[in-house]
Amino acid sequence: MDLYGALQSLGIANPGGSGWLAVVFTFLLAWGVTYRFIPAVRSFALRVGWADQPNARRLNREPLPNAGGLAIYAGVVAALILATFLRPIILQDVLAEVLTILLGGSILVLVGFIDDQYGLPPYLRLLTQILTALLLIANGTHIQVTLGTPIDPLLSNLITVVWVVGITNAINLMDGMDGLAGGISFITAMSLLAVSAQFETRAAATLLLAALGGAALGFLRHNFHPSHIIMGDAGAYFFGYVLAATSIIGNLKVNTIFALVPPALFLLLPVLDTTQVFVRRLMAGKNPLSTPGKDHLHHRLLALGLSQRHTALTLWIVTLVCNLLAMRVQGMNSAVILTTAFSIVLLLGFTVWQRLRAVLKGA
């Protein structure tokens, strides 16, 4: 089978064009920039004190730089700038969507970074997340409710805000252990990328997800246990926001509550984890947004005796299964699903092997 036929069998939109090459280059550049930029960010962060100090709630035993989100953001932006130069004619139709999501993500990176270093009130973080969700709505990226009622527009905006804010916080709450949030974000980004690549109308999502997936993989090279750096709120907010936004780009219409199941399956693990944490904290009379605790799924696995590496790998597997199921529910054929699964396992396996080899060498 020739290359065109292979791409066609995977359902790639316009396999005869060079768009898929732009996606590959975007992924590789985001990976390379993030991977190479993190050591410099880590060194600078340690000098100026941008680090999480050990305490009873955290798992680190020494100061751990928390500015990894800046390298992730730089990798994504650099990759998308290159993509703009590679495909200026095609991108002009989706540039507004890309820039809107990047603008919202940039705001959250800034707010998350300030919170990492100085601390911000929970209500201010929540307000910022709501404003960035409204930014998407203003640009036409939203979940469209079509129940045939006069309040459909209001419900559309409300569900979109809840979705974006919820996913943004869900990824952030999963970022409590080496390699966990980065691995979940990588798996989800690659799975959503496999779906969006089937549709030319989702070119904005495809490019963003390629850049996000590459940045996540480059970050994991330094973040798998034992971690050299963590992403902090800046990186977790950015991952969550971009994943939430790209998952609803396109023609996502809700005529029943079950219409939200397919996109929710891609992010099922973070959603379930966040839901159980919120419910438990509310039942205990605590504020879910400002009360830290060791009540997440990864904390429970660690309490059962699993190591950080085994806990991360276990939750990666659960995330991969959920994403492959989501792809099946969305009508992807077996070739697309199997290729996606193989690619994810291969890239994660190579990255983990690189990290463990560096640890053995004392790097």
Rank of each mutant, 00 (worst) to 15 (best):
A30N: 09
A22M: 05
G68V: 06
S43I: 01
I89P: 00
P88Y: 09
E62D: 10
V77M: 11
R42Q: 14
L86R: 03
G19H: 07
S43T: 13
V94E: 11
I81H: 06
R61M: 07
S18A: 14
T26G: 10
L86S: 06
G68F: 10
P54K: 09
D52K: 05
R58G: 08
I90S: 15
R36S: 15
F37S: 11
R87P: 00
G68A: 06
Y35M: 11
E62M: 08
N55P: 08
V94I: 10
N66D: 08
I89N: 11
F85Q: 09
G49H: 01
W20R: 07
L64F: 06
Q53S: 09
A30S: 15
R47S: 09
I38M: 13
T34W: 09
R42A: 13
V24L: 15
V76R: 08
G69N: 01
L80H: 07
A51Y: 02
A79E: 02
I38K: 00
V48P: 02
G49W: 04
A56L: 12
R87Q: 14
I81E: 00
V76A: 12
R87H: 04
A40F: 14
L82S: 12
A56I: 07
A67F: 08
L86F: 13
P39C: 09
G75Y: 03
Y35P: 01
I38Q: 13
A51W: 00
L91A: 10
G75N: 03
L64W: 05
F37Y: 12
N66L: 14
S43H: 14
L70D: 02
V33L: 11
I90K: 11
G75C: 03
A51E: 15
V48C: 04
A74N: 04
L64T: 15
G49D: 01
V23H: 13
V76N: 05
F85W: 14
P39M: 06
G16C: 06
R47V: 03
I81Q: 01
P88C: 05
V24C: 14
V23C: 13
L59V: 12
Q53A: 11
G49F: 03
V33H: 08
F85A: 11
G17Q: 04
F44K: 10
P39F: 06
W31S: 07
I81Y: 06
A40L: 14
A30Q: 05
D93V: 04
N55Y: 11
W50S: 05
I90H: 14
A51P: 00
I72K: 08
L70N: 01
L86T: 05
A45I: 01
L70P: 04
V77K: 01
L70W: 03
A78K: 02
Y35V: 02
W20S: 13
R36H: 09
A83T: 10
D52V: 04
A30W: 04
A83E: 06
V48N: 02
T84A: 15
F85I: 05
A40E: 09
L21D: 00
G75R: 01
D93A: 14
A40Q: 12
R58F: 07
G75V: 02
W20E: 04
A71S: 15
V23P: 01
V94Y: 12
V33G: 08
E62G: 06
R36L: 15
L29N: 04
F25W: 12
V94D: 12
R47Q: 13
R42D: 05
W20K: 11
N55S: 11
F44V: 11
I38E: 10
W31D: 00
P54V: 07
G16K: 04
Y35Q: 11
